[in-house]
Every structure is written in structure tokens, then in C-alpha cells.
């Protein structure tokens, strides 16, 4: 199974999995920290709410509209 990294932790995924689904099934299952310090997880699943915005290989991306790729580095705390 291919693998990517979420906050430094390896995560194995089935081909076609979205990064949002990966985030919600690993670590603290969250995607970002809000301005008042709450951890948040994907909400709308369709590119509207921006709760799933993460850093992927240095670029800000929406996890729910991104498909997992081998070797991706995903950061939820940057």
C-alpha cells in the first residue's frame, strides 16, 4: 500500500483516498487549529468551508479536494 506522512507520522492509504479522509482516520483526526486554538476537522467535504485546509508539500491545499499520493508531506499544524 502506498504511504504518505501526516505531521511526520506515516499513513498508508488505498488508491483514490482523499487527504481529508486520511486525516480523519489518523492522529487526532483533525485538519487545522482555529484562531482561538480549537482543533477542527473537515466539515463540508466539498471545498466550501475551508476547515480542511492543510499544508501539502509546502502549498496550502484543501484536503477534501486533494487525492492522496505516495510520499506527500501533509502538515495540519502549520
Amino acid at each position: 500500500m502506498p504511504e504518505l506522512s501526516i505531521d511526520g507520522q506515516p499513513f498508508r492509504f488505498a488508491q483514490g483516498t482523499t487527504v481529508a479522509a486520511a486525516l480523519m482516520s489518523s492522529g487526532d483526526r483533525c485538519s487545522r487549529t482555529s484562531v482561538s486554538g480549537q482543533r477542527r476537522a473537515p466539515l463540508c467535504g466539498m471545498g466550501i468551508c475551508q476547515e480542511c485546509r492543510v499544508n501539502i508539500d509546502g502549498l496550502r491545499r484543501l484536503a477534501c479536494q486533494t487525492i492522496c499520493r505516495e510520499g506527500m508531506q501533509v502538515q495540519t499544524r502549520s
Binding site: F13, A14, T18, A22, R40, P42, L43, C44
Partner: peptide
């Protein structure tokens, strides 16, 4: 509603289709 574990309804459907177990 901002707690992790809460999503939209169609949202959950989309997330499951996208691989959420």
C-alpha cells in the same frame, strides 16, 4: 457544531466515498 466528529450530511457521504472508514 465545531467539534471534530460533526460534518454536513452530504459531506459525510462524500468523505466516505473518498475513503473515510
Amino acid at each position: 457544531w465545531s467539534l471534530p466528529g460533526v460534518t454536513g450530511a452530504g459531506a459525510l457521504q462524500a468523505l466516505i466515498k473518498g475513503g473515510l472508514p
